[in-house]
Structures are given as structure tokens and as C-alpha cells.
Design a protein around this nucleic acid. Structure first.
Lengths: 213, 213, 213, 213
DNA sequence: GATGAATGAGGCTTCATTCAT
DNA sequence: CATGAATGAAGCCTCATTCAT
């Protein structure tokens, strides 16, 4: 779901633009950027080829608009994440679980954007960079959360900050990707899980590892 | 390094084929499958365009050969991994650390293949599938290791098997990708780590999570 | 300056049409007919794309209107040129100089039209023809002037009429083009000349050539 | 006629390239750069569209190659022009007539290139510039010839150097254009003239003007 | 084995023109 | 009168693949 900022009624123009963006993000995610032809998009939208260019300067800028919009919304979810000031370990776990649930929910509601973000690659330089930056910002957001927890003495310093952030984001990105887009082994039931189950199991691994309680 | 099976001396033909494969895997990884033109490959190799087609039926089969060769070698590394029959938790951790180190070393020595495997996407159906299958096989290999450990009572059953395997492979894939290919935040020192450091820190997170010893 | 024929006050409609014509002639001259997009014209005029088609049936007719209007005014200047009946050589030179000055002045005041006329080419058939015809009419006007002078015995018949007319018009067209639109060599001071200087020097060459007095 | 530099036998490659260049220059001259489609060129040559791009990077570079090649050959003709050191007026006239004949002959043998050079306009920036530069160089070549003659006292200094050069080149360019490409008035016999006639009549006007001997 | 010229389908984009409001 | 969204034909160029030599 892509939202066009506007105070009140979306105009006819907004609607058409949104339609094209949604078709684009879906096809980019499903078939890849390069395998998505402008003609595919406009055919699905039921408009002429030229119409696309009334709304977007080029194929590349559609992709960039999609990323830009998704990036902002995703980072907002993460940043309003941990707000906890001190508290017990249990508080931290609960807070983390809530954050993970928010992220998983966002991913579920923006599955094509997330699929693009997590698996997109091999496209033009500018697009590649937009993705990289988004993922870095995401990692930075988590890193500052972890940093705060370490300063409050809530986390041991057996593993260093950068590594922890990298491990944590790896975990989240990987599990979201598997949950929503696969690849998943034949008889795995991963795809059936709810947001809450995903959050609960992930947070347990996050804090306690394989040996966890 | 791509190896052509042949009983003895590699022939002239093998050498040229290997050269083309190596150039291809590097470019596929660096620029993506679709952004790699046959003309790029042959130019870099210093041969004529037509020569490529003497060695490969099509662009697609080069990719498939690359995946096939890498898949076999990677799975071998993983499968000869845990061999431990029972033993203490410490034994399990040590075994796991050794396995991780093997995987990291393999990734380092086959960085273009790994980059393709972990970040490749958006290419033709057949190639997409080959990657998916490889990653599933990888997850299955880990799953059977975890299963054995759970049967031996070495791991609590607070998290179910599939989820555990998914989380574990997410962790490994994500951290390898960040370590070798990025994206990595500006002042992260991740890229400088040795195989052994990576293995030690990852295994700690694997077993004990963020709160780990 | 393009003038729309109308008995009294120019209406709002005339003004808008004039504005569009002026923008069009300027851009046609500066960038060429084909490089001038309707969207460029309407953007510069600050109106919508569709508005253009309320005033003109097509892009081509704008060009034709421009040529038509310019052609009439230019020919009028030339035709009211030599009126001299007999007289001395000096009279002829003076008359010719006055005519040249008129032409140069017209060119200065209608520089975009003149640029189009003298350098325009490569556009659609109809437009090409309109230009050709205009230039032929121009040459015919000069030819009849020369003819009269030859009949009156004021010019020797060493060079034939057609050739003389062609040479004369070549001279005028070429020098106007260089004076107003270039290309002009780096340190040439041609562009700074006034109408009167241009006329004086050109008429001297016209009558006496390189060796002239 | 476009010539590819090569020591001996033109290769198959040279022949094809020459063929495409010749078709291109002809169509550019006849219909204009923008009205010439790559498909027109390749159809006329009887090859596939893609073949064009085996020889030229783009439509623009064909035009530039054409100009470059023509420019060099034209300037060579002009520069080896006046060689006369002093001498009588008659020598100067004779020399000039020979030079004009050379230029006219070149124009006749390279009519499409000349048509492009003299009437081409309205195309892409780079092409426009290439033409401008060529014409400036041409004027410079004439200017240095005139300058020498003035230094030797063979020409009066009633008209200044720049103006003289501009007038002279206007004359030549204009008369060549009319002779070979028109526009020419209905019953003009200009087009039938031989190189020698053209040179004789032009040189007379050049030195003596309308009143000339 | 190897070359490099040739092919041709197909993609992205432009832009004059039309049309409902 | 005016708007601006929509159209669709067409052009340039790319590139995997083929093929004669």
C-alpha cells in the first residue's frame, strides 16, 4: 500500500499514480526489476504506454520512488521501537518483542516493498545504492538501540556493538524473508505463523540463542 | 576458483572454459546477471564473441554451471560439519564453531559464488530456482544437525525445529553477506575480521543470544 | 515581432496567438524545428498543452504561418527598393546602398524569422518548400532590378543576368547570416557593425569587387 | 565518395562501413538528419538494423564521421589554393580562378557532404558545432589568403579584412549552394554550368563586382 | 577451434495530437 | 477558452545468438 501525501481527497491524478506504483512494486518484487517491462505495468493498469511517462520520468525513478516511500515508513517503525529507559531484562525482552512484532507486521503489510528490499539486487547502480542505504539505516537504528542497552548495563559486553547489530539485523532480515518469501524447505510450517508467534520465537533466539530458555 | 572435473592434466579447452566461468561469476556477482553482457565476458577474456558459444550453449547455462559447481562444494563443507555423537555442551559449541569457520572460509575463497548465492535475484526463472534449491539444501543440512542435537537432548525444545533452522541459517547467511559484501554501516569494522573471529562471535550469539556469556 | 491582421484593437485571442507565434519562431530559429517541442512552447508561454491546438491546427501550420507572414513583409521591403529610373552610376550605388540598409534593418528587427529563412533546413517537405519559394521570390525581385539596370545600359553584360542575381543574393544572404547568426571566426568584429556600415561595405563589394575603389 | 584510409585492399569491413556512410550522407543531405531514420539507411543497404551498430556507436557519430572526413578533404583543397608570391593582378585573378574551380569541383564530387555543410542545420548540438567549426576554418583559410594579398599591396584597403573574407565566403558558399542544390528560380540556367564557367564568372564578380570588366 | 560480422526481436522513451471535463 | 490527462505510433538502441569463413 503506497500512500500519496495529500491533505484531503486523493485526486484522480494521485489515484492513477498510486495504481501504477503498486503494480510496479508488485512486479519488481515478483519478477525482478529488469524482468518487469513498462508494457507489463501499463497493460495491467489498462492504460497506454505513454501514460506511464506522464507520471514518471523513467523506469528507474519509479523504483526510486518506491524505495524512498518504503524506507521512510520502515524507519519510522523501527525508530519508535525501543523507548525503554532502563528496566529489567524482562522489560527489555518485552519491548524487543513488541518492536519485532511491529516490524513483522509492517513487512506483512508491505510485502512487495520488503521483498524488494531484502532480495532485490542486480539492478541499476542508483537503485542498488538506494537499497544499500536503506539497509544501512536500518542497521544503524538497531545499533543505537543496542548501544543504549549496553550503556545501561543491560547487555554484557562479550560481543562488540557492530557485530551484535550485524547479527541481530541478519536474524531479522533472514527470518522475515523466509517467513514471507521463502525459500523454505518442503515441510516447513514457517509460512503459516502469525506475527505474534514469529515475534515470540525470534525474540527468544535473539536473547538466549539456541540454548535459550 | 572453479574446478573442471577431469582425471588428469587440464586441457587447453578446460583452461579456457574455466577462465570464462571465472569471469562470468565475478561479473554476475559484481554487476548482476542481467547487467553482465556476453560481450563484457569475452572482452575481458580477450576472445571473440562467437568463442563463448563454443563453450556454453547460452548465457543461462553458464549461470547454472556456476551454481551447480558451487552448490556441491558448499554442501560438502556443511555436511562434513557436525560429526559429534553426543558429548557435552562445550563439545557442541566447539563443533559448531569449527563448522562455522569452515563455512566462512569457503565463503572467503568463493566470494563471487557466495555473493551470487546470497544476494542474487531477479534473474531468469531457472536460475532463481537453482539458487532457491541450493539455499534450501543448505537449510536442510543444518536442520538435520539440529535435529540430532535435539534428539540427544542437547538442546531444549522451547523453539521448534523449523524455526530454529531458519533462524540459524538467517544468522549465518546474513553475517557472511555483511562481512564480505556489505552493505555495512560507515564505521563498522566488520570487514576486517578474520575467519576465526567471525566464527567465535557468531557461535556465541548462536548459542547464547544477546545475553550470552 | 509578428503582426496579426485585424482592423482594430487586438483581442485577447490575437495576443495569445501572437505570443505563441513569437515563442515558436524564436525556438525554431535557435534550436531548429524538430528540436522544438510543443511542450517547450506552451511551457514558455505558461499555458497548457491543449491550448496550443486551440490556436493552431498543428505544429506544421505554425511554421507555415511564420514563414507566410515574414515572406510578405520581406518582399515588400525589397520591392519598394530600387525605384530609380536611369540616373548615374552614383545614383545606382546610392539606391542600392539604401536598399541593402533596409534589408539589413529588416533582418535585425526580424532576426528569428531571418535565421529560419537563411539557415532553416531539414524540416518537413511543406516547410522546406515554403522557404525555398520565399528565397526564390527574393532572388526574382533582385533579378528584375538588375535586369532594368542592364536594359538601361548601366551595367556591362560581361556576366549574365541569372548568374549576377545568384551572386548578388548569395552575397546578401551570406553576409546577413554571418553578421547576425554566425558562424564567425574568433576575432572577427563583424557582429558589432551597424546597419549603415554593413550597407556601405557590402555595396562597395557589390559594385566593385575585391579590387573596388 | 568517402574514403577509408588503408594501405592496400579495402577489407570487407571497410566496404560495408563505406556503404553505410555513403547512404547516410546522401539521406542526411536530401532529407535532413532528423528525417533520416536508421531503418532507412539499413533498408537501403540491405542489412539488418543491428548491423548499423556494429559499425557506429550511434546515429550522431555517423554524422560526425561524415563531417570530419569531409572537413579535412575540403580544407586541403582550399589551403593548397593560392600559393602565388606577389605577381600581377592578372596572376592573382588566375590563381583565384583556379582555386575556385578546385572548390567547385570538390563540391561537385562531394555534393552530399557539401549540401550538408552549407544547408545543414537544426540538428543536435554536437553536429551543429562540427559544421560551424568547419565553416569557420574555411573562412579562416580564405582570410589568410586575402591577408597575404593585402600585405603584398595587391588589394586596396578600402574594405577591412574580416569583412572581405566574410563577403568572399558568402559569395562562394551561396553560389555553390545555388548551383548544386538550389533553390533556383524557374528559368535559371545556373544548374547547367560547368565548373569552369562557374569559376570564370564568379572570379569576375569577386574582383570587379557588378560593374566589373 | 576461433573469429567477427550479421541478425532481429524487443525494450525504453519521445512527442504530436486528441479529448473529456 | 482552457486544462491536463491520455494516446499510440515510431524511433533509437541493446544484446543474446547464429553463421560463414
Amino acid at each position: 500500500m503506497i500512500i500519496i501525501a495529500s491533505m484531503n481527497q486523493p485526486t484522480q491524478r494521485d489515484l492513477r499514480k498510486t495504481q501504477l506504483l503498486e503494480i510496479a512494486v508488485e512486479r519488481f518484487a515478483k519478477y525482478g526489476y529488469q524482468n518487469t517491462k513498462i508494457s507489463d505495468i501499463v497493460n495491467q493498469a489498462g492504460v497506454a504506454q505513454g501514460t506511464f511517462y506522464w507520471y514518471f520520468k523513467s523506469k528507474e525513478v519509479v523504483a526510486l520512488e518506491i524505495i524512498q516511500s518504503g524506507r521512510e515508513r520502515l524507519l519510522e517503525v523501527i525508530r519508535k521501537g525501543y523507548r525503554s529507559e532502563g528496566g529489567s531484562v524482562q522489560d527489555m525482552v518485552t519491548g524487543s518483542q513488541r518492536l519485532l512484532a511491529d516490524i513483522f507486521r509492517f513487512a506483512q503489510e508491505n510485502r512487495y516493498f520488503m521483498e524488494l528490499l531484502l532480495t532485490g539486487n542486480g539492478e541499476e547502480e542508483a537503485i542498488r545504492n538506494a537499497f544499500r542505504e536503506t539497509r544501512i539505516e536500518m542497521e544503524e537504528a538497531f545499533k543505537s538501540n543496542i548501544e543504549r542497552a549496553m550503556e545501561l548495563g543491560m547487555l554484557p559486553d562479550t560481543i562488540d556493538l557492530h557485530m551484535r547489530a550485524a547479527l541481530l539485523v541478519s536474524l531479522i532480515e533472514g527470518i522475515v524473508a523466509r517467513w514471507l518469501f521463502g525459500p523454505v524447505p518442503p515441510n516447513s510450517d514457517l509460512a503459516e505463523r502469525t506475527v505474534e508467534q514469529m515475534a515470540a520465537e525470534t525474540v527468544r533466539f535473539e536473547f538466549f540463542g539456541l540454548l535459550g530458555i
